[in-house]
Amino acid sequence: MKLLGISGTIIGAKTGIVIRKVLEEVRKKHPDIEVEMLDMMDYNVEFCDGRPLEKYSDDTRAVIEKVSSADFYVIGTPIFQGSIPGVLKNLFDLIHPDAFRNKVMGFVANGGTYQHFLVIENQLKPIASYFRAFVAPAYVYANYDHFNKENEIVDEGLLNRISYLADEVVHMHKSLKVNPVKIVE
């Protein structure tokens, strides 16, 4: 089973730092789980425009394949102007909705104000609902105050929330694999 951590931005370091910390916790506590990081900074992904998959660049196809083949996710985003960045929205647009169906998503966000955590509730959870994904009830929101000048996490509460989210997404994924949800349409 494969957990994919996604850092949904092409600027800044904090989103990737928090996602990597969640993945580190999963590796430490659950060595049976394959963990992979998808940092959007490492790819030149084209805009979604409806063309067939084979017409997109190698980077775009590689990202689509990584996301589509994962079993569950921890998705991270910075909050800019009270919303997710276009990079993450474009990624969601590129992925076929069935790729996320009945899979667990955990969310991580970071921003400059404490109120921006609401973007998880008002934007990310509805997107997951559209995809018919299962959302971990806990999520992690990090503020600039949680990091030191070297971008190291120094807030114990944040580290505890990271550890809890790591456990929760794994627990949900394993529970749903043992007792799969049967959808009647």
Rank of each mutant, 00 (worst) to 15 (best):
K2T: 15
K2E: 13
L4E: 03
G5L: 03
I6D: 02
I6C: 06
T9K: 06
I10R: 14
I11F: 15
A13T: 15
A13M: 13
I17V: 15
V18Y: 10
V18Q: 05
K21Y: 08
K21E: 15
K21G: 03
V22H: 05
V22I: 13
L23G: 07
L23V: 11
E25Q: 14
K28R: 15
H30M: 05
I33T: 13
I33G: 07
E36N: 10
E36I: 09
E36W: 07
L38I: 06
D39I: 06
E46P: 05
D49M: 10
G50M: 07
G50Q: 03
R51Y: 08
R51S: 11
L53S: 03
E54K: 13
S57K: 01
D58I: 09
D59H: 11
D59V: 03
R61G: 01
V63T: 00
I64P: 04
E65R: 13
K66F: 01
S68Y: 00
A70M: 09
F72E: 01
V74G: 06
V74M: 08
V74T: 11
V74H: 04
G76F: 09
T77A: 14
I79P: 02
S83M: 12
I84W: 07
I84H: 04
P85Y: 08
P85Q: 03
G86P: 04
V87K: 05
L88Y: 08
K89F: 14
N90I: 13
L91G: 02
L94V: 07
H96K: 14
H96P: 00
R101W: 09
F107T: 01
G111T: 08
G111F: 08
Y114N: 13
Y114D: 11
Y114G: 15
Q115F: 13
E121M: 01
E121G: 01
N122I: 00
Q123W: 03
K125Q: 10
K125A: 08
K125H: 01
P126D: 05
P126C: 06
I127Y: 07
I127W: 05
A128D: 06
F131A: 03
R132M: 14
F134I: 15
F134L: 14
A136F: 06
A138K: 14
Y141P: 00
A142M: 06
N143I: 14
Y144C: 06
Y144G: 15
D145K: 14
N148V: 13
K149V: 13
N151I: 11
E152G: 07
E156F: 08
E156K: 15
L159R: 01
L159G: 00
N160I: 12
N160D: 15
R161F: 10
Y164T: 13
Y164P: 00
Y164I: 12
L165V: 11
V170P: 04
V170K: 04
H171Q: 13
M172I: 14
V178T: 14
P180N: 00
P180R: 00
K182S: 12
K182L: 14
K182D: 10
K182I: 15
I183T: 14
V184A: 11
